[in-house]
Structures are given as C-alpha cells and as structure tokens.
Design a protein around this nucleic acid. Structure first.
Lengths: 206, 206
DNA sequence: AAATATGCCTAACGTATGTTAGTTTGTTAT
DNA sequence: ATAACAAACTAACATACGTTAGGCATATTT
C-alpha cells in the first residue's frame, strides 16, 4: 500500500526513543490481540505500520519472533515482580494483594501484550514453547506457595491453593471484558472492585 | 451390513444415536480447542475423523458452520439454564450458586465445546457474530441483575455487579488450567473448592 | 437382483500466506 | 559532493488452505 504524498517512499514513524522494531512489535500486539496470531497476516501488520509486507523483514526475523518478543517480554515482567515481592518482609496476604494489583495494573495498562501473551502462547514453536510453559508452571507454583504460607499464618482462609491461583489469574484476565465494554467504570474503580471481590468474596461478613 | 477391513473405503464410525455430522462436530471441537480455529485445518479434521478432507463436505456446509454449531449450541444451553433459574422461587444468592455450579459443570464435562465457544467466537462471520455478541451481553446483564437483587436483599456483599460477573465467568474458565494440569484433583473437589473461594472469598471470617 | 441414494475418493482450483531476492530510494558520515 | 548504510520497494516463490466437481464404492430399498 502506498502512503506516498507526492513522490517518495513510506517510512515508519518513530521518535528517537522507539526503534522501528519496537513500533512493529507494538502494532503486532494490537493486531494479534484483535484477530488472533494465526488470523493476523504480515500484510495486515504491514498495512497498520504503513509499509509493504516485505519491508518488515528489515527489522524482524519472522512472524513467530514477534510472538516470542511479546510473550517473553510479559512473562519476564511478571517473573521479576514476583521475585521482588517474595523477598519483602510483609504478611503473605499483603504479598498476594500486591501481586494481584500488579496483574490488574498490567492487564489495564499493557492490555495488548498481556492479552496476547495469555491467549496466543500456544502458537510459539518448540524450544520457546516449552520454555514458556515451564515459566508459567513455575510462576503459578510460587504464587500457590505464598497462598499456602498465608493459610498457615491464619491470614488466608484454608482453601486449595492451586485452585485459588487458577481463579485469581483467570479472574484478572476478565479485564478483557472491561476493555471491550462500551461504558467503562474508571480504571481505579475497577482495580479496587476487583481487589474487594477477590480478596473479600461475595458473602457478607457478619 | 458388510464391513470390509482390507480393501475398501473409509467410513466415519457411528452408533445409531450419533450422526456422522455430530461425530465431525465433536472432533472439530477437540481440534479447535487444541489448535485454535484458524490454525486447525479441514485436513487436520479429516484425518482425525479418518477420512479425506473433501468428504467432510457431504455432512457440513463449511468450516465456519462448525464454529456456529459449537458456539450457539453452548450459548443456548447457558441461556436456557439462566431462564430456568430466574424463575425459581429461591434467594438470589442460591440462584447465583446454582448458575455458577452449572458453569463449572459444563466447563468440566463439556470442556471442548465450552472452551471453543468462549475463546474462538471472534472468528464467527457477521450475521452470526453480532448475534452471538448480543446473546453474550444479554446473558451477562441478566446475571448482574440477579447479583444486584441479592445485594438489595442483603444476601450478597455490596459490590459492583458487572465486575463481579466478569470475575465469576472468567474464574470458571480457569478450569482450562485444571484440564491441562497433570495431577488433577477430582472434579467434585474442584467444583466445591471453586464455589467456596468464589462465594466465600479469601479473607477468613471472624 | 436391480435401482437408488449415500458416502468417500481423487484431482484440482483459486486464493492467501510467510518469506526471499534483488533493486531503488533516502539518510548519515566523510 | 560522494560514499556507505539503512530502509523501503517490486516481484515472485513455495506452500497451505477452504472448497468444488465428477466418478467410484458401499448401503439401502425395491
């Protein structure tokens, strides 16, 4: 597609702090999120960047590489955060809340990447695929461990920790519906509502 | 009936209660779930059914039709259930629990279809797509209405109902992780754990 | 046994996709 | 101004996909 206003070649717009590669990756996140990895074509991506499909390959190696970049970018951020929180000297219940708030925040403010990492990692290819799955498994085990510590300390209701992890993580990913919905409540309201419900539960306290 | 095991054409196996069409749809659910709709090819599906790709078209109209069938099959079951529960003369909190248990049960025992309906409906085409989205929106509104009734009756903690709906529905879809996990707890345990956590919350009652 | 209908096969079409090769244009440094 | 580099272009390839057409094989009905 030609976006040439008078005579010349298209160029990917960047400011000095974002490389063209990063622009492409960001656009890819958007596209993968709204169409899914398989359904989003390199020609689609090229168009949304304002360039011909072949030109993308001056900046990236392959379509799959874009997925790597997105998935591991997100995974690393979460891994770093949980390590940070683990080492703080605060009650387990507070650790959970901190991690939960981080998840919510990421899901709200880095929606595209987080969503893609969450739903499209299946399409990674095998050295990366098993790597990613491993990281995911480890992350969940760590989260479960914190919950179990909280239960032992009497700060958390005695429940099945792996089930709790599963509920927490997936509940947060429900923010997708918030993004899609037309009349949104504010991001802060959403965050606080989610924390209230997830930590407090539905049943009224007497 | 003659079944020739040495020299003749493949045939889709059925018992008298399942049509070949239904066999194909069931296999499609499995395939769409594990690869995603776009990544699953008709040739994949044909192989898993034990037949050539072209032969499928004696029983179905198109690939998309398979998705229709799955998505609306699931959607209708949920719609029917919520209508049924709405009309019962029981407290709102019990209605919510009933619906929640239905969701959990469906997600456990009709995993493939429910999962596909939940994650792949984006690939429906437009008369069906908007129809599906509408049904979904309506369903969630109804669920929120029940929760709000429960709040007014003092049976449920005063929280933001749409947020609660979003959390409940997505939390249930976390059962996906249970299906994928190697050492599963039993289905009954899972169901009860989920109800406990979702209805009761994490914070201990004093 | 013959006739009809159903189900499957092979072959192929048209289209879309990811990617490569080679060339031209634009920018930066000498 | 010119050389060197980066980034865009055009053209094309190979492959995979959904789907159709037409013929043979099997099952069912007469």
């Amino acid at each position: 597609m030609l976006v040439c206003y008078l005579c010349c070649m298209a160029r990917i717009k960047t400011d000095s702090h974002t490389s063209r590669r990063e622009v492409i990756i960001a656009k890819a996140a958007l596209l993968f999120r709204e169409k899914g990895f398989k359904a989003a074509s390199m020609r689609d991506l090229a168009e949304s960047v304002g360039v011909e499909a072949a030109s993308l390959y001056n900046h990236i190696k392959s379509k799959t590489e874009l997925l790597h970049e997105l998935c591991f970018g997100v995974a690393n951020r979460f891994m770093q955060k949980i390590e940070e929180v683990e080492q703080e000297k605060i009650p387990a219940a507070e650790k959970i809340e901190k991690i939960l708030r981080f998840h919510i925040h990421e899901m709200i403010h880095h929606y595209e990447e987080v969503y893609v990492s969450d739903r499209e990692w299946k399409h990674l290819l095998d050295p990366y695929l098993s790597n990613f799955q491993n990281q995911r498994r480890i992350y969940r085990k760590r989260l479960a461990a914190i919950i179990e510590a909280g239960i032992r300390a009497g700060e958390i209701e005695p429940i099945d920790a792996p089930t709790a992890v599963l509920i927490l993580l997936h509940a947060v990913s429900g923010i997708e519906s918030w993004h899609r919905s037309r009349h949104k409540i504010s991001a802060e309201e959403l965050e606080n509502n989610m924390i209230t419900i997830l930590v407090g539960g539905l049943r009224p306290r007497k």
